[in-house]
Design a protein around this nucleic acid. Sequence first.
RNA 1: UGCCCGAUGGUGUAACUGGCAACACGCUUGAUUUUGAUUCAAGAAAGUCUAGGUUCGAGCCCUAGUCGGGCAACCA
Length: 553
Amino acid sequence: MAEEKGPNFLEEIVDRDLKAGKYQEIITRFPPEPNGYLHIGHAKSICLNFGLAKDFNGSTNLRFDDTNPVTEETEYVDSIKYDVRWLGFEWANERYASDYFDQLFEFAVRLIEKGLAYVDDSTSDQIAEQKGTPTKPGVNGPFRDRSVEENLQLFSEMKDGKYKDGSKVLRAKIDMAHTNMLMRDPVLYRIKHAHHHRTGDKWCVYPMYDFAHGQSDSIEGVTHSICTLEFVPHRELYDWLINSLEIFPSRQYEFARLNMTYTMMSKRKLLQLVNEKIVSGWDDPRMPTISGIRRRGFTPESIRDFCERIGVAKRDNMIDFGLLEFCGRDHLNKIALRRMVVMDPIKVVITNYPEGKTEQLPSENNPEDESTGSREIPFGNALYIERDDFMENPPKKYFRLSLGGMVRLKSAYIIKCEEVIKDSDGRVTELRCVYFPESKSGSDTSGLSVKGVIHWVSVAHAVEAEVRLYDRLFNTEDMGAIEDDFKNHLNSESLKIQKAWVEPEFRNAKADDRFQFMRTGYFCLDKESTPDKLVFNRTVTLRDMWAKEQKKG
RNA sequence: UGCCCGAUGGUGUAACUGGCAACACGCUUGAUUUUGAUUCAAGAAAGUCUAGGUUCGAGCCCUAGUCGGGCAACCA
């Protein structure tokens, strides 16, 4: 796990508030809108909100911000709850903004009575026009000075379904010339004759974000309402509403959202990838969604570690995708079971090993964890090794198998290649080798020393499987900065499906097992895997100094 | 031509709140290794956006700029 860091600015604020006796106990909330699946950026927010409460002995509510019935669905609610729990967090209360619709309506009435809100019959275009621009003040509309009585009646009629969608809105009465656009009489309620995933057809008026979020925070006694930077200008309105309503003063604090190289976080665009079948679903292992990352094989521990390492601040950031990979490897190294898998085979025949003979050779399951013990691997005279692990004419620093050269077969014997057999195209089809019986792993008396160790699998015992090799979904580093269609930036090589030959021990593989295919990468079983057809997802490759060395040329 | 945020090695985050700029990822080199993994050791890399000011002393405070981001949905 990450080293101790100094406190982030939010921890400082909470610490200060607690020490000053401002609160007995802090309450935070994680407030997703159930209109899509959670992604790694949400994981940052989850770790922050739940982590902060945990560290300071407070509590966290899970609250769905479900104020827009046309985009929200129960499927999303379920996936969000599953993801939060998978990450290792438990909420004190499961709440919905829609739980508060009655109360919120009451708040709106209160505002009208105080002369701080009015019903506006203008069209959205007219409202936008009256609003002005950031550099030009807005102007008052013709409905701004209706009487309290008239507003009360109209708002009540809005609720009763007397008006069509879009024909009227309730707006706060603040200041059309305010330098903050959000304070220019923001819309509080709009009419939507739509079915809501929880309240059904009870309502045809729904509160806007600004009139639901802060009020929900207040109702729940949330002390520290933490959101991302784009809500900074909303804070003034957040406070205005709380003050006008004279309700519990929750406070809003903002942090910079997560950006990651080669990654697109926009929910709308992720939905598009799903709808247009560019990916297999929200949980496609290439997706930055929590469900995708989970299916890819990352552990919740590694995601939490990642969120810890990236830190929390207010400046825009761009996290290297490599950091997530590092966190993935760091944990997987400790828990993954080592296995031998050959993905691009060359057949090796050991000419001095008796045909038909089989030996069972023990090999440790995880050198990082003695308690995982070892397994037996069958060895015979015909093996597969990786095509990459042989070169007829190797460069100086190559220390795998070459013609006339020696390598050790992991957990088995040292072999020497004596003959290369090729097809008519010159492609190597078979290597004929001899082995040294006295070089057996664990009881090597051969006196031979070789630099290279390679993995292998017995032809007679190998099990065929499918491996899915993933790479970044996009090949543009900063997907937030593109101006053209994001589909122009898709990486055509983000998924490669291959056959592989795996050791027979995999017959005992379980869904949650994590594996290290020795010398290649970390893998897990995909949900589509069956006992008859094993399917593996590559979570992340191993670090590869040799590949780096080769690139240098 | 407004208002609001922000600015520290390549990246991210720190700096006991005014006292020799640190940690992690990445990078380089070496050791160990029956995974070119892991582990271990060493190293390169910023003088803190700029210019002034306050101070014995400024990354931290003040002033003015510069640059980057956000704000004109009946989305959240």
